[in-house]
Every structure is written in structure tokens, then in C-alpha cells.
Nucleic acid binder design. Sequence first.
DNA 1: TCTGGGGTCCTAGGACCC
DNA 2: TCTGGGGTCCTAGGACCC
Length: 422
Amino acid sequence: MTGRLFALVDGNSFYCSCERVFDPRLEGVPVVVLSNNDGCAIARTTEAKALGIKMGDPYFKIRGLVRRHGVRVFSSNYALYGDMSARVNETLARFSPEIEVYSIDESFLDLSSGIGGDAVAYAQEIRAMVRRWTGIPTCVGLGRSKVLAKAANRWAKTHPEFAGVCDLTDQALRDCVLAAIPVADVWGIGPAFARRLMAHGITTAAALRDIDNRRARQILTVVGGRIVQELRGVSCLPLELVAPTQQGCAVTRSFGRPVTELSEMADAVAAFATRAGEKLREHGLVAGVMQLFMHTSRFNDDPPCSSATSVRLLEATDDTLELVGHARRGVERIWRDGYRFVKAGVLLTDLVPAAAAPRPLFGGRDRARSARLMAAIDDINRRFGRDTVAPAGAGLACGWRPRAEHRSRRYTTRFDELPIAL
DNA sequence: TCTGGGGTCCTAGGACCC
DNA sequence: TCTGGGGTCCTAGGACCC
């Protein structure tokens, strides 16, 4: 059977590999990149995985291991990873115009037409060029559907004898690989679905492929029905060549230490609203609804408290000053004295393109004036660094700031942090 | 002492309307 | 004694992804 051919190209231990590109001394040693606030391990090199460090392990629990084995630890540096990701995708686009940038470290290519000859050799070319031009090592999975390309990629990553490329268009190999993949490892099957499937005696990807459609939908809803089709090589998840308009925009953070004062919380959400406004303007969107939340830790014996509100804005906006005003007033309404809050956030929804936003019949914002002011602020912050200009209280280094004690330099996006060749 | 952040999609259930 | 049914919209919550 022939048909569609998808490739999934995935950066190996992507964040760690980005760090290695700019510091060759990290080659061959265990490296870990931590989540925001230096909370958990979210990327590990094979050397770090071999030490037993798991995805999502809290940093304070692996600190002993890190010290004993000389693991190199980094705070996450999204400016660097985002820029490296863009370079990888520019390279990939030379191999197929049909590319879906699925996440910061994964892209699907549609290779259905135009590669002629040997798909595995073509995939090896892709890997070699990405490595040469960006320094990032990758693996490539080939399959007749996105779910199969995902499975192939995973197999290539965990089986070095495949030399970084696994092609599941071959039926014998496909049957063998799907029979060996636990159902929980199939793309789209999370812990809850996996439990349901196991309860029905379905434990492998091959077993899931072989159940009938009605049963699949019964156990897993319509989502599962599509996964089963894809496992059979029937492509029903199309490549998304243009990113759909964003539905929401969130800025949320864990604090470097608990927040117990309203004034401090108000400054924090003002900072979140400021960043959210920047993100809206980067995408040319305005928001119609703001949601706010804050909560205490669920990992200790502090009295639990979770407080939230939702504000419908009279007129959709991307104006930082308005957003900050709503955030400060909202947080005053939901504030509760006597609790130790460890996290809060601002979510903007009901997003529409700024040009398409309805205007109120009377009054309303002075859009032109607001746009000029925001453009000026964004320009200054682009040139001189984020938070050079920020609303009062929203930009200063404060006690609640998340920790980032191991951040590498923003080698590629800041002149003052460029790598230096000696 | 110390446990991430930012998304999407689907479903169930209530409100509302005719 | 006897109290509809079906459609739509909205929201909250759950599931998934990286």
C-alpha cells in the first residue's frame, strides 16, 4: 500500500542540545534543563537519563544525584531555544514546502510527493544538514500517518541501531514495532485513556490498531477513533500548514517564594498582564475576556486556597495600561488574607484580530492614541531589553520573581550576550 | 526551604428559547 | 390524576500535547 508519507523530525533532548551548541564542554556529560522557577527537570541528555533522572523530577529531589555525578544544570532559556528552533525549521523547509511546526522541537514534513527514491536516505540527508547548519542532533520517523510517524520517531530515538531514522511504511517492521509499543506510549493516549484501555485488555499499539471503530469511540470518544484509523495507516490528521489563530494567551508563574501581601500580588499580576499585552500585540490580537487566578501550594500542609475571577472587558483591547488596570482591580476583589500563595496567572481569551474588533456605539477607547503609545513602548523594550519601560510596579525585580539561578547566556538574541571566540 | 508553563479539543450539563 | 421537546449557546472540567 502506498499513499501519504509523513516525516516527524524531532530534536534530541532539544533544550540540552541547544546548550551544547554553545558550550562544547557539555558534550558527553549529563546535562539537565529545568522548568521555570528552577522547579523540575524538563530536558535530559541520554547521560542524565541513564542516571535515573526522569522527566518532571523536582530539582530539589535530584540535587544529590546532580552533585555526585557532576550533572550540568541549566535554568530554561526560552529566548535561546526559540531562536534555535526557528533555525532548525528554516533548514527543514528546504526539504519540503509542506511543513507543520508542531512544537518548539518537533516538525512534521509531508513527503508524499517529490522525493523519488529512498525515503530513509532522504531522512538521513535531513538529519545531516540540520546537524551541520544548526548543531542540533535529530531523529526522523517515517509513516503513512502522523501517529505512525510519531511512533517511528520514538522508535528511532530509543533504538540506536536505527541510526536516527525509522521507516514504518514497511509492513513487517510496522507490525513488529506496534506490537512492542505500550498503548500508553501512542500519541494521543494519556494516562486516563491508557487506564481505560488496559481495563479492556488492550495493552499495545498493535492491539489498539486492531479494535473496531465503534469500540474505539466507546472507550476513547471521537479522538480515539481517529487515533485507531491513523494506526492503520489511514491519514485523518491533516498537516496544519498555517498556524490557526490563537484561542487564548496565558501568562502564569510560580513565585520564587510565597506571596502573602495583596500589594505584592497586585504587582505580580500587573507584570503578567504587561507581558500578556506584549504577546497580544506581537500577534495583532485583542482580548475580550481576562481571567485571573491564584492558589496556594498543593505539596505542603498550608491551608489550601484557590481564588479566581473572570472579567468581560467592555471593549476588546491589547493596551497594557488597560489590562494592568483590570488585573489590579480583579485581584483586589479575589484577594484572601492569611494564605501563602505560590502561583498566579492572567489568561486572556475571546481573542480577535485587532482590525476585526467591534467598536462600541458610543465612546470607547481612543485606539489610535493607544496604538501609538504601545508601539513606542514595544520599540523601546525591543531595543533596550524587556521591562525597560513598564507600568509602575509591574517591571521591577521583586521578591516574588521566579528563580533562574542557572541560566545560560542568550547567545543568539542579545548583543551583550553573544558568544565570544578566543 | 525547594514540585513548570502554555496550549488545544471534547463532553456534559445548565440556561435559554421557541 | 395531568407539567414537552428539541435546538443552541455557554461554561466548567477533563483529557491530551510538548
